[in-house]
Design a protein around this nucleic acid. Structure first.
Lengths: 235, 235, 235, 235
DNA sequence: AATGAATGAGACTTCATTCAT
DNA sequence: TATGAATGAAGTCTCATTCAT
């Protein structure tokens, strides 16, 4: 019975911590770090002001917990999705799509990163650094296997390939947000992967040994098609 | 004489505005937006606290001016460098290197972007949006010419190619900062370009045996594009 | 058996109370009243935060207990030392030295006095007042005997003599702390006593060769005077 | 005109600083350091909360200014009074009386001393240490002259004499406060001085060297007779 | 146009004390 | 009796912005 009680108490504590993180996440996402007050977070969590400080040393620490939590969810969903797929192309496609969808939803959370990591120099070794590493390593593993099996280009330094992969998406989603065209995620991901994969047939028509001429004709045709497809919407 | 006086006065005003922006830039870069006080900026500019408000409506407005100024300098240095080069590969290489070097130096300035653009939705149409557009258009022009001349892959949607280009660098420089390996810029840029360029063997413009037919088709396609863009209402 | 159990329980309670007082004493001495937290005291005592409040009404009450305890120890050590000595001079010397050594060690404790006695007006009659009285009465008794035996000057009002005695030491120890010269305690005490004692030969070289007879007569006369002076008023 | 304006402004600033110090003094004196809020001081000074921080770095700094101000007033009034008197005895009497009266009025201010001087070790060299030194040096000068002219005992180490002098008063006033007998100041001061001065005739009845023993014995005898005659019933 | 002293809202944080377990 | 998580009042201090000079 005592064990049960202890267990219950621990659960309660964890529930409370989760409630605070969740409230913080919501509020940070709505107002940004600076304009969010601890009082508001406390109110949203249904606890007293002081209680928040029992769980988190200060506002920055809470923000860090929120970002950590985001990274954990991101990593978990990415890993579990990747595990169910076999081919390099499919795995990367899932990883990319999952990434874009989640960072779109929680972009304000990611904007806090530079604020809560004082100097970039001290970032290496921090908890967040490790969490980020834990996440991107999913790509690294896929890429390594892909390069071994000849599915991914080998003439690019691995860490640069990774930076291109994630950097392109972190930047690209903003463009999409501004133009309010979330439906382009698929297009974006396909184009990105076609750059990385040796044989992008899974996403784009094959172009292997074709002559340049044929290739460019095709490209020109595609652009025309694209224009025509998009035009009606632009009106 | 009066004219001279007026001119002098106007110059003085401009000098003062520049001094404030420069001081703000330095201080924002050192401490970040939140930890920089208006009083510090005033002191660094050699003006009184109140004077800053004669030139800028508020702190956010001043930060916007700083970022605008940064974009203007970035665009100017990029454009002037690009203008002196002929080949697609050389132009892109310069654009990339210039970009990485400048954002490394002023990374804290760019971190302010999400803070001074309230909702991302209102970003499109803002002054900063236009300035950013002005900048990235340099890439767009090179890319267009590059695709026309067959130096750049054509199977990637242009705006996505652009996002990959800038996104990769904005992300990559962080990795390099953390590892304190700024010397990798060259490696990074080369790898990035090798993905984008059709023949990246030496980043030299390839004058391969162009087919007349392809050239004509391409030219036709461009003309069509232009027409359709200009006259959307014509159906 | 029940009695034994009760006794054990009572002992346990007393041990706990002592532990809390001791922890409080240490912490107050280290950080002062304001900067000491109840949580820290609880931690140092090895009890839970709430438990402290089972033994002491509040922080002030606990501080009072600490000071009371200090006075009790001060009184006990003074009394037991004095009891073993015979001459007025030796007794005062012991009393003074004992006082200086203890208040040097626990000066932060005494600094709390004004904080825990709200208005000075309500001090008279309080427990601390009584404890202080209990302590200084040791001096009073020595002084009375000393005056009776002619060893202490009689032309000073007794309570003033006492205030001079303790006041000089409470002030003097600070001077010594600042100059970090604790070795001057002896010098200080000797000088102080030479002022109070009629014949300070025990501490200072004799100044003249007064005859014993004259001296004794004078002392007797003074005692008579004192008796007569005070008697009518006391009625 | 500009000079006048500057002068006016400086005066205004000084007036404001004085007003804040005065309000702080009043409030600290009424409630003590801990229970005094900066908001209350601001309100009492007639300025906004933030304004106080333009003049004083923080609450502790303000308290220090209040104590400094007290020491300055104490020193000024002591010095000017002493300057008008000639004899050692008169000067010391004035110094003592002035001291007691002022510390009685502002005792809560002095109680703040241990709070605003963190560690006693760092007290030496601080501004308050210097101010205190400036003050007690008045005694030192009188004592030096007094010892030179033979009016003050020479067998006491000078700094100890000084500590006895001030210590006795700082302690004695408390006794008087508790018993609410401020009228005893005179008695106290006289007794204290009679200990320090070689010839305390100015304060105590003279007892010159010739035939005093016999004379006093005679007087004592007479008084005894009187007493006995007056109180026959007491037997 | 320039100054810079003054403002005052409001943020974060602490911690003595309580009370359900 | 003991616990310790929770409370929430209250305090200090900052700083963007204003406005009289």
């Amino acid at each position: 019975m005592q064990k049960l009680k202890t267990s219950t108490r621990r659960e309660k504590v964890e529930q409370r911590e989760d409630a605070i993180i969740e409230a913080a996440r919501r509020t940070f996402a709505k107002r940004g770090f600076a304009k969010t007050t601890m009082a508001e977070i406390a109110r949203q969590s249904g606890v007293a002001d002081g209680t928040v400080y029992l769980y988190f040393k200060n506002k920055e620490d809470l923000a860090r917990a929120v970002v950590s939590d985001f990274y954990r969810r991101l990593t978990a969903s990415a890993q579990s999705g990747v595990d169910e797929l076999a081919s390099t192309a499919e795995q990367l496609k899932f990883l990319a799509t999952n990434h874009m969808e989640l960072i779109m939803k929680e972009r304000r959370i990611l904007e806090m990163l530079p604020l809560i990591n004082g100097e970039i120099d001290s970032y290496g070794g921090s908890e967040l650094f490790d969490l980020n590493k834990n996440y991107v390593v999913i790509f690294d593993r896929i890429a390594k296997a892909g390069q071994a099996s000849g599915n991914i280009k080998t003439n690019i330094t691995p860490w640069i390939l990774r930076d291109i992969f994630f950097g392109a998406m972190d930047y690209g989603f903003k463009t999409m947000m501004i133009k309010d065209r979330r439906k382009d995620i698929d297009l974006f991901v396909d184009d990105l992967l076609s750059l990385i994969l040796v044989d992008s047939s899974a996403f784009k028509p094959r172009r292997d040994d074709m002559s340049h001429i044929a290739g460019r004709l095709e490209a020109a045709a595609e652009r025309l098609e694209t224009m025509i497809k998009r035009n009606p919407h632009e009106r």
